[in-house]
């Protein structure tokens, strides 16, 4: 177990910064998720922590020690690649024993540890097979067993679930979380899937263009996005953003409700909502339209849970509202969130 920290880390590919000055620090045994769209630098950051890329600038600390310049094998880390990178010419047993062989353990110790790791991941019956004879889920378990077997200080996982089909992915996510809680090893997990990030991470670092836009708990990044990028990257459908002069008004589709429902005692902010289309999805209704008084091109989505039975007719204006404490304001220029008290002019439409 160890704390991983990066300070002012930067990686240039030619003139293009892939990672552009990132500072992060995990807690002991934490499950930290690096979330961002593809090409945002999250995998490069992970590879720098692993020692597979050399940072152009900045430092990496594992367990309080600077590991700059150390090759991966000395960093006491284990990594699971997106492809699982099982050695195709070795049996599952030899795959898992491979890191132990590097440490020079004798055969009996190797066998004992491999069986322990295989038992933990429930793959004992697969030990004599070869990777090509395994299903996707089984391969993932083998890769995890191989990562686990040398009891590393840190797990680095690079989109380990993205090669699994949707159904398997949900089960694998559970398994992975339970496994991480049990071994309580600091884990850095890279993904572009916000559902994975929200569901698994103790904390999430949301990245774009090589920078961390926000770092915090899932609740925090979801409810109080630091800027418009985080606001729209998290949530499905994403946060509605309405432009008005210097400011952008944002609210989540599930907070945008008919005025009769939204008013539960607290202050609300009302809008005139023109609904163009209603999508009935069983557990909820999605409404598509725009808000009067703002740019009509800006699509605004409302998500009504099945418990809200208010009839909605299309091609008509409706009174909708958002609880005022759920409305977020951003600067148009930079996209950064601003405190409502700092607003210069009231934004009532």
């Amino acid at each position: 177990m160890a704390v991983v920290e990066v300070r002012g880390i930067r990686k240039m590919f030619g003139d293009v910064p892939a990672v552009d000055g990132v500072d992060l620090r995990t807690e002991e045994g934490e499950f930290l998720v690096l979330l961002g769209p593809s090409g945002c630098g999250k995998t490069t950051l992970l590879r720098m922590i692993a020692g597979l890329e050399t940072p152009s600038d900045g430092e990496v600390f594992i367990g309080g020690e600077s590991v700059n310049g150390l090759p991966p094998r000395i960093r006491k880390i284990a990594m699971v690649f997106q492809s699982y990178a099982l050695y195709p010419h070795m049996t599952v047993f030899r795959n898992i024993a491979f890191p132990l062989k590097a440490e020079g353990l004798d055969r009996d110790e190797q066998r004992e540890k491999v069986e322990w790791a295989a038992g933990l991941l429930d793959i004992t019956r697969l030990l004599e097979r070869r990777p090509r004879q395994l299903s996707g889920g089984e391969r993932q378990r083998v890769a995890l067993a191989r990562a686990l077997v040398r009891e590393p200080d840190v797990f680095l996982l690079d989109e380990p679930l993205s090669n699994l089909d949707a159904k398997l992915r949900a089960a694998a996510r559970d398994d992975l979380l339970e496994f991480q809680r049990r071994v309580a090893t600091t884990t850095i997990y890279v993904t572009h899937d916000q559902v994975e990030a929200m569901g698994m991470g103790d904390r999430i670092a949301v990245m774009n263009h090589g920078k961390v836009h926000q770092f915090g708990t899932p609740e925090h990044v979801y409810n109080d996005p630091a800027d418009t990028f985080v606001a729209t990257f998290l949530g499905s459908p994403p946060m509605n953003l309405l432009h008005k002069g210097k400011y952008v008004v944002g609210f989540r589709p599930e907070q945008f409700l008919p005025e009769s429902v939204a008013n539960d005692g607290g202050a609300t902010t009302g809008f005139t909502y023109h609904v163009n289309r209603v999508e009935y999805l069983g557990a909820e209704r999605y409404l598509y339209g725009h808000v009067r008084g703002f740019d009509e091109e800006t699509k605004v989505i409302a998500m009504l849970p099945v418990t809200v039975q208010v009839p909605i007719t299309t091609d008509q204006d409706h009174r909708f509202a958002v609880a005022s404490d759920k409305v977020r304001y951003f600067l148009t220029e930079t996209g950064e969130r601003v405190d409502p008290e700092m607003l210069q002019a009231p934004l009532r439409p």
Binding site: A50, G51, L52, P71, P72, R73, I77, A78, M79, F81, Q82, S83, A85, Y87, P88, H89, F98, P99, A102, E103, R146, R150
Partner: peptide, 27 residues
């Protein structure tokens, strides 16, 4: 041969030469 394989071997405790001779050369 995917790079992942030898990088995995390097993370698993081998030097580059060790990783290549053990995982890439057999492949």
């Amino acid at each position: 041969i995917p790079r992942d394989i030898e990088e995995q071997a390097m993370v698993d405790g081998y030097s580059r030469i060790g990783a290549v001779t053990r995982t890439v050369v057999p492949l």
